[in-house]
Computed example of a mutant assay.
Amino acid sequence: MTFFNSTVPPLRRKQKNLDFQDLQGLWRIHLQIGNTTLYSTFYTRIDQACIFWGLISAAIFFTAHFFPLSWNIQAALWSALTLIGTAVMVVWTRFWVKVEQVSWVLYCWVILMLVGLVLTDLGIFLGWGNVLMRLCPLWLGLSAFGYFLTGLGVRSRAILLAGIVHLLCIFLLPYFCGWEFLIAGGVMVISLLILAEFQWDMRSPISYDALTLEQKQFNQQQHQLRRMIV
């Protein structure tokens, strides 16, 4: 048995026969004019967390690039937004990670966000030049580490690739002086939105100990339906 599920591509169109844990808090979007469907998709709680963090990342990094706000004001605003984002992420994803037996991945993301937040605020309020000059590599590195842990936890090549892209971006930043925040923010936002918009690969279904017998049977039926479609 291989570590990754090589029977599916790293990214593909979203599956419609979702497991019980994926259906909780699901957002469905269907735009239609007459008989013509303009856009139809859905977003699980994991997808929603990716989109929310994408919006937060866009607000933080694009503001830092385009608007001349003082660092102290930005630190206060983005600290509050990061804490809100972390809390929302925990609330939205804790059931899914519990069922998938990867709660440790969520804890790691919380720790990474708090470490980044503390280092950033100390760098700004205490005037730590070395930190201020490396804010983009700092957050890219923390994100890459989080993606690597997540990719290994759920055995996803797509998520590991996102981590590799973040690392590569760190090495490319010195060649784009003055554009660091825009580029770093762009990489973070695009990666999150891609993961939210597509179905990424992960390990084969496991024995979901956190679910009831009926919920386990429902997941087995959904798995069989997905195999028939494939």
Rank of each mutant, 00 (worst) to 15 (best):
T82F: 13
T82C: 15
T82S: 12
T82M: 11
G85W: 00
G85R: 01
G85I: 08
G85A: 11
T86A: 10
T86H: 09
T86G: 07
V88N: 13
V88C: 09
M89S: 07
M89W: 02
M89N: 08
M89R: 05
V90P: 01
V90G: 07
V91N: 14
W92T: 04
W92M: 01
W92D: 02
T93L: 04
R94I: 12
R94E: 15
R94H: 13
W96D: 08
W96G: 04
V97N: 03
K98R: 15
E100F: 11
Q101N: 15
Q101K: 13
Q101G: 12
V102G: 03
V102K: 02
V102S: 10
S103I: 10
W104K: 11
W104A: 13
W104L: 10
V105C: 14
L106E: 03
L106N: 01
Y107W: 14
C108K: 09
C108T: 13
W109S: 02
W109Y: 07
L112Q: 01
M113C: 05
L114Y: 08
L114W: 09
L114C: 14
G116K: 06
G116W: 03
L117S: 09
L117A: 07
V118E: 04
L119I: 13
L119H: 09
T120Q: 11
T120N: 08
T120C: 05
L122H: 13
G123V: 03
I124C: 00
I124M: 05
F125I: 06
L126Y: 12
W128D: 05
W128A: 03
W128R: 08
G129A: 08
G129S: 10
G129Q: 10
G129F: 10
N130R: 15
N130Q: 14
L132D: 03
M133A: 14
L135G: 05
L135F: 03
C136E: 12
C136I: 14
P137G: 10
P137M: 08
P137R: 11
L138K: 06
L138E: 04
L140I: 04
L140A: 06
G141Y: 01
G141I: 04
G141F: 02
G141C: 02
L142G: 06
L142Y: 05
S143F: 09
S143M: 13
S143R: 02
A144E: 01
A144N: 02
A144F: 00
F145S: 05
Y147N: 04
Y147T: 05
F148Q: 06
L149D: 12
L149E: 13
L149N: 09
L149M: 15
T150F: 09
T150V: 14
T150W: 07
G151K: 00
G153Q: 07
G153C: 13
G153V: 09
V154I: 14
R155M: 01
S156A: 02
S156T: 01
S156G: 04
R157L: 10
A158W: 00
A158M: 08
I159W: 00
L160R: 05
L160P: 03
L161G: 07
A162G: 10
G163L: 09
I164R: 12
